[in-house]
Amino acid sequence: MASRFLIYSKHFGLTGRPFSLVPDPNFMFWSAVHSRAYAMLEYGLATFAPITVITGEIGAGKTTLIRHLLRASPPDLRIGLVSNAHGARGQLMHWVLSSLNQDVEGWHPYVHRFRQFEAFLRSEKAAGRHTLLIFDEAQNLSEIMLEELRCLSNINCENDELLQIMLVGQPELNQIITRPRMLQFAQRVSAQFHLSGMTSSDAVADYIAHRLKVAGTTREIFSPEACELVFAASRGVPRVINQICDYALVYAFAEDSTVVGPDLVRQVIADRKIQSLTSSPTPDR
Rank of each mutant, 00 (worst) to 15 (best):
N159I: 10
L141E: 06
V189R: 03
R122E: 11
S35M: 13
G13C: 08
G169H: 01
T282P: 00
G106C: 06
R122N: 10
R122Q: 11
P50I: 06
S279I: 15
F5A: 02
S196N: 14
Q187T: 01
I7P: 06
Q243I: 15
R36Y: 08
T282F: 06
R67K: 12
A254P: 02
Q275M: 13
L163C: 07
G59N: 07
E118A: 10
P18F: 02
L167C: 09
E57S: 03
R36T: 10
A252K: 05
I7H: 10
R211G: 02
S279Q: 14
V240E: 05
V104K: 03
T218A: 10
P238N: 08
Q170G: 09
V240D: 00
P23F: 07
S98G: 07
E124V: 13
F135R: 07
A209M: 07
G216I: 12
V96I: 15
A126R: 11
R115C: 02
E42P: 00
A2V: 12
S196C: 12
G236P: 02
A88M: 15
F5Q: 00
A205W: 02
L146V: 11
V111G: 07
F231V: 07
A60G: 08
T282M: 09
L146K: 08
D263A: 14
L121M: 05
Q275S: 11
F193D: 04
V240G: 03
F222E: 00
H194N: 06
S234L: 06
Y43C: 08
T15Y: 14
R239P: 04
L121H: 03
F222Q: 00
V230S: 01
F48M: 03
N159E: 14
G197W: 01
Q187K: 06
C227D: 01
I244A: 05
H108F: 14
P23A: 09
L264D: 05
T64Y: 04
F117K: 08
N26W: 13
R115Q: 11
L92R: 01
H86P: 05
E161F: 13
S99W: 05
S153Y: 02
N26Y: 14
I79E: 05
P224Q: 00
C151G: 14
E147S: 02
R239K: 13
D246A: 05
F222T: 00
R211A: 04
Q170K: 09
S20R: 14
I58A: 12
L141V: 12
R150E: 05
G261Q: 04
A85P: 06
P283T: 02
E118Q: 14
M182D: 07
G44A: 02
S142K: 13
F185G: 06
S35W: 09
R272L: 13
K273N: 12
E124K: 15
H108D: 09
